[in-house]
């Protein structure tokens, strides 16, 4: 059951927002089927119920713990998930359903992944050439070198192969790829992983640069702090579900996260008290009946253990999955 609360937006404004919609994901699930012990088949519910909306020129951060299947989320959207996995749900790109055929056309052209791993570049190909292949217009060598300068890379890096580049340089090359391509949607998988404090700020600045290019950026991260710095909206991911989507404006105005898990994440930040709770996620092999967070939640009631809370819409883009949200 969704509760719609229109916050004073006129019909016209709503339409404008709707037209500006870049990607919409509803009820996305990804299940991996594999052989368990002996000959039994085992199902892994990696993504259970994921929702997301992103507009042009917007940064949405998906925040979740390491190992919660966030990278597979990117694969599922791009349609490059492993062969033994089943993806279900609805994905719309620019208000049109994303079919397999359309996905193929959009991959690398409209939607671009910024991978997490620094070994994602072909080890035997010049990095410049790898960036170049994403460009459409001719005579790109000069253009690539200009982009390299823009992201703070020496143009001479063009002729090097990845093993000659540091991890930080490779992350910059990824950003250069995003700038070189004409992609409207960038999915950045853990772009700040393994970077030092200064480099994180530089990376976030470059993500902002992409946003100013009117690209939509989905930033997948476990770093809530980095997400708070750069994102317009934060989607909190727990046990394969979107548990909350919050607008940064709401947080800026002194509002709090609404879901108990998001609050726990917030409280675990050093500047907010460093309070850790036991937040071991339910195993992906479990089939959940009640709320995924019920076992760890300080506010859980009997109802939470039996009934699964739905994602409620609070305003047109803010959502929360909790019976007692905001209390």
């Amino acid at each position: 059951m969704h509760v719609y609360e229109l916050n004073h937006e006129t019909q016209e404004e709503l339409e404008k927002i709707q037209n500006n919609l870049l990607l919409e994901v509803k009820n996305l699930s990804l299940t991996i089927e594999r052989f368990g012990k002996g000959w039994t088949r085992e199902r892994l519910y990696v993504i259970r119920d994921f929702h997301l909306k992103i507009h042009h020129g917007e940064v949405v951060a998906i925040v979740g713990a390491s190992g919660s299947g966030k990278s597979l989320l990117a694969d599922a959207i791009l349609g490059i998930h492993p062969k033994n996995s089943i993806v279900d749900g609805m994905i719309k790109y620019e208000n049109e359903l994303l079919t397999e055929k359309r996905r193929k056309r959009l991959r690398g052209n409209d939607i671009l992944l910024i991978p997490q791993m620094t070994n994602a570049l072909d080890p035997l190909m010049k990095v410049g050439k790898q960036v170049k292949t994403l460009m459409k217009q001719n005579n790109h060598q000069k253009a690539v070198k200009q982009i390299f300068q823009k992201v703070g890379l020496d143009p001479d890096v063009y002729d090097q192969i990845p093993s000659a580049c540091s991890g930080g340089m490779i992350r910059k090359i990824f950003i250069a790829m995003a700038l070189a391509s004409e992609a409207k949607l960038i999915i950045a998988d853990e772009p700040t992983n393994g970077l030092d404090y200064e480099s994180i700020d530089e990376m976030l600045f470059q993500i902002k640069m992409l946003e100013k290019d009117n690209k939509g950026v989905i930033m997948i991260t476990h770093d809530l702090e980095a997400a708070m710095k750069v994102a317009d909206k934060i989607a909190v991911f727990y046990a394969g579900e979107t548990v909350e989507v919050v607008d940064k404006k709401h947080l800026k105005k002194g509002g709090k996260f609404r879901h108990p898990y998001s609050r726990a994440l917030w409280n675990a930040l050093p500047q907010n008290g460093f309070i850790a709770i036991d937040s071991t996620q339910p195993s992906a092999t479990e089939k959940l009946t009640g709320c995924s967070f019920a076992k760890q939640c300080p506010k859980a009631t009997k109802k939470c253990k039996i009934e699964k809370p739905l994602l409620k819409e609070i305003s047109h883009d803010e959502m929360v999955r909790c019976f007692y949200a905001g209390m």
């Binding site: 694969d75 991959r107 994602a120 072909d122």
Partner: peptide, 9 residues
Amino acid sequence: FIRFARSKG
């Protein structure tokens, strides 16, 4: 890098 290449279409 092949996963990445696939993601680029």
